[in-house]
Design a protein around this nucleic acid. Sequence first.
DNA 1: GCGAGTTGTCTTCCACGGAAGACAACTTAT
DNA 2: ATAAGTTGTCTTCCGTGGAAGACAACTCGC
Lengths: 175, 175
Amino acid sequence: MDDDRIADIVGQWGRERPDLDPSPLLIIGRIQQLAAVLDEALRPPFAAADLGNGDFDVLAALRREGEPYTLTAGQLSQRMLVTTGAVTKRVDRLIARGLVSRSVSAADARGRVVGLTSTGVALTDRLIEEHLANEAAILRGLTDSDRRTLERLLAAMNRTLTSGDFGPEGGDHDG
Amino acid sequence: MDDDRIADIVGQWGRERPDLDPSPLLIIGRIQQLAAVLDEALRPPFAAADLGNGDFDVLAALRREGEPYTLTAGQLSQRMLVTTGAVTKRVDRLIARGLVSRSVSAADARGRVVGLTSTGVALTDRLIEEHLANEAAILRGLTDSDRRTLERLLAAMNRTLTSGDFGPEGGDHDG
DNA sequence: GCGAGTTGTCTTCCACGGAAGACAACTTAT
DNA sequence: ATAAGTTGTCTTCCGTGGAAGACAACTCGC
């Protein structure tokens, strides 16, 4: 088994390009691999409900918003980090399943308000339980202290990344 | 700015479903978000070379393998965690760019040996330097000790995940 | 050597999401 | 009220990858 694909990769680079330091891959490569494996590991409940992971994202965003479980397409786009075009398609699929509805915003006739149907609320409430249980299971190898540390370090990475000034680009601070 | 999208999400779930523990999202959600942001942050060098991130994966896998910089399609599939169909397409694109070549394996006429051209080696050698520099920059907010801790914890998560027996599925241990 | 099963790769079809443009509806200045 | 510019969403086209099947080439037992 490729129990340590990342370590192998780092070893190979160390041999081939000893002038470089491949150690960042131990963290960044691992995160990327973990994300891929996590997606697959967490998919079964969604697959059983005939939902793409992205579609559940819509349901969850609406559900956790609280009553009346509505967001505009633009808000969904921001929350899910996808384009509005992707939102349109996700919502179209969910409407076909009867899990959400779309209507014209009362405040702005350009706006489309997406809302969970009662079926959608029920399904989401059920799926989020399974989902969080699966996530908890994945983390059960870590102590509480480990988890706090991991949270802190990942949040720190995220801060560096979203501050924008991490690389040769030179972030665009607008004052 | 949505400086802490994940924390917001956890807060929302805490309000809406106080019966559940949303804290796993602080780690797993963060990892998924980080992977997405990392992909984008690390893309520029590849985009400048007119390469998809996945295409660079092929080049890197071949380059770090060492001379003669060759792997079969199946080996590439395993190394990159994609199907052989995806390998075919990635290699097709790279052949069109003159960065790799494909030939029939001497040992097994079904096998296709993919190899870096000299142009491919040169490009990969240049890109991996930029790439690792960018990764190092992303990690510059972490101390050496932080990095070792993070490596350890991520590797631990990976072990739980790949051992298969983390969830309701019940792993398929074959012996 | 031959047939049955297996393996490695490619092909076809499909699902998903991004980019850019279309379009309607909003705002603002006049 | 109107024109010009902006904003929110949808539409179209494209690129990427997965799943399943096609196909050639391999292995093994006889």
